[in-house]
């Protein structure tokens, strides 16, 4: 029985529809992740006019080209610092970096560490598909051990990053991980990340059936998604250090870090411009800065397993 045909999709208001269908392969999780982001935006009621998406290079980098808002498709690895500069210039904007694991954690690895450390008030949606998809499926810093990629033809001999652990330790205010199968929780988590003040990151495990799945026993499009369904374990407040992912083993999804609100990098930059602040003594400035040391205690508790 045919389905009703439609001209428009409910998310079309947020999409540059003239550019659809997008370039992503059938069954690619990027579209699911992007959909979750747009629904989250809609739910938190952000004005698209004051919302900016910045992408890097790779399949995920193309997301910026599909959203009907100010959006930038930058160079490989540099989406984060571009966003940092943009936020420094216009702290009132909602800036989301939508990029892939290779872009954010390999070539751009340094930037994300420092953005988290500074508590820059941006939201990062890190699409982790285990692989460099756009260029044909090469090894990524997230590829699980023993997985086959075009540049690890005998199986990956390296350990992948534990993104959740890395980000929590670097100083992020909010760290979560979901897969594209957890679409509803993912969306809620993105909503939280968007409204969280400070550096927030949602790692979105997303299948690449084309360049990863078919080389790693997830032949069909649906198989990759079913893998996530089967192997993911939802946990309340998991320890970020337990965020390691191993092939054929259960892995944790959930909110690894949700630190109390603290002044963001932009808040502090604004404070520096304050004439009264500039006039205060060096001792007073030191006190001010130390009073706003980032949630170190919370972090220690979480990593220490108290939470």
């Amino acid at each position: 029985m045919p389905i009703h045909k439609a001209e428009h999709h409910p998310l079309d208001a947020y999409l540059r529809t003239e550019r659809l269908p997008h370039v992503w392969c059938p069954g690619c999780g990027l579209g699911i992740a992007l959909g979750a982001y747009l629904r989250a935006l809609q739910n938190v009621g952000f004005d698209p006019q004051e919302t900016v998406m910045v992408s890097g290079i790779g399949c995920s980098g193309r997301a910026a080209g599909y959203v009907k808002m100010d959006s930038f498709h930058t160079t490989h690895g540099r989406a984060i610092p571009f966003a940092v500069g943009l936020k420094a210039a216009r702290p009132e904007l909602n800036v989301t970096v939508f990029s892939g694991d290779g872009d954010l954690f390999s070539i751009g690895g340094n930037h994300i560490l420092h953005a988290a450390r500074r508590n820059v008030n941006i939201t990062v949606l890190a699409i982790n598909n285990y692989v460099y998809g756009m260029t044909g499926g090469q090894l990524a810093p997230t590829t699980p051990e023993s997985s086959i990629t075009t540049t690890s033809p005998y199986g990956n001999i390296e350990s992948p990053f534990n993104i959740a652990g890395l980000m929590a330790v670097a100083g992020a205010s909010y760290v979560a991980r979901w897969t594209t199968v957890h679409e509803r929780r993912l969306q809620k988590s993105i909503e939280k990340a968007l409204t969280k003040r400070g550096f927030s990151i949602v790692e979105i495990m997303s299948p690449c059936p084309t360049t990863f799945g078919r080389r790693n026993n997830m032949r069909g499009i649906v198989d990759s998604m079913m893998y996530y369904k089967k192997y993911s374990v939802i946990k309340e407040h998991p320890n970020p250090l337990d965020g390691v992912i191993k092939p054929g083993e259960k892995f944790i999804v959930g909110e690894f870090m949700d630190a109390p609100d603290e002044p963001t990098f932009e808040d502090k930059l604004e404070e520096l411009k304050n004439k009264e602040f500039l006039k205060t003594s060096q001792a007073d400035r030191t006190t001010w800065i130390l009073e706003h040391r980032r949630h170190l205690e919370t972090l220690a508790k979480i990593i220490g397993g108290e939470q």
Binding site: V54, T74, P81, F82, G85, L86, K87, A89, H111, H114
Partner: peptide, 24 residues
């Protein structure tokens, strides 16, 4: 104005491009 000491030069130039699109 805003001064940021970035983590490296790759980040520095990316940041100033971002700031420029921000209108500064």
């Amino acid at each position: 104005g805003v001064f940021i000491q970035m983590e490296d030069e790759l980040g520095s130039i990316a940041a100033i491009l971002g700031a420029s699109w921000g209108g500064k």
